[in-house]
Computed example of a mutant assay.
Amino acid sequence: MEDLMGYAYYTVTRADGIEIEAGYAVEAVCEQDGCTEPIDRGVDNLCGSWPGTPDDGCGGYFCSRHLGYRDWESEEPQPENCKSCFEKRD
């Protein structure tokens, strides 16, 4: 996957070896335990910077309430993370 812009549907293999459907046209539910917020599996809802097995997140998909943790003071570009991944970065 060279360019993620415009990708409505694709598959990725997660770190646990499970292949999932992803893309902004793939309907899903937030992966935070207990959350039932409908989302899509586009990169806007991704924890990390690259679908599948990012080295800067878990590769899960979350609603806006459970994604968006980052060091806002840093001048380095950072992906958005879920709370669990953000806390592991410290």
Rank of each mutant, 00 (worst) to 15 (best):
M1Y: 00
M1P: 05
E2W: 11
E2R: 09
E2T: 12
L4D: 09
M5P: 00
M5E: 15
M5S: 14
M5F: 00
G6A: 06
Y7S: 07
Y7T: 08
Y7K: 13
Y7D: 08
A8G: 10
A8R: 15
Y9C: 14
Y10I: 13
T11K: 14
T11F: 12
T13H: 01
R14A: 06
A15P: 06
A15I: 06
A15V: 06
A15E: 10
D16Y: 03
D16I: 03
G17R: 08
G17M: 10
G17C: 13
I18D: 09
I18M: 14
I18K: 15
E19I: 15
E19F: 13
E21L: 11
G23E: 09
A25F: 06
A25D: 10
A25V: 08
A25S: 13
A25R: 14
A25Q: 12
V26S: 02
V26W: 00
V26Q: 12
E27A: 13
A28F: 05
A28V: 00
A28H: 10
V29D: 08
V29E: 04
C30Q: 03
C30H: 05
E31V: 04
E31K: 06
Q32N: 08
D33N: 03
D33Y: 00
C35A: 00
C35P: 02
E37C: 01
P38H: 02
I39D: 02
I39S: 04
I39E: 11
V43Y: 07
V43K: 01
D44R: 07
D44C: 04
L46G: 10
L46S: 07
G48S: 05
G48L: 04
S49F: 03
W50C: 15
W50T: 15
T53V: 13
P54I: 07
D55K: 14
D55I: 09
D56Y: 06
G59Y: 11
G59I: 04
G59Q: 06
G59T: 11
G60Q: 05
Y61A: 05
C63S: 02
C63L: 00
S64G: 08
R65Q: 13
R65W: 01
H66P: 04
H66M: 01
L67P: 02
G68H: 01
G68F: 02
G68N: 01
R70K: 14
D71V: 08
D71I: 02
D71R: 11
D71A: 03
W72D: 15
E73L: 14
E73H: 13
E73Y: 12
E73G: 07
S74A: 08
E75D: 13
E76H: 12
E76A: 12
E76F: 04
P77F: 02
P77C: 01
Q78I: 03
Q78H: 10
P79D: 07
P79W: 01
E80K: 00
E80P: 00
E80G: 08
C82Y: 01
C82E: 07
C82Q: 05
C82K: 05
K83T: 05
S84G: 01
S84A: 13
E87Q: 13
E87T: 12
K88G: 03
R89Y: 12
R89S: 14
D90S: 11
D90M: 00
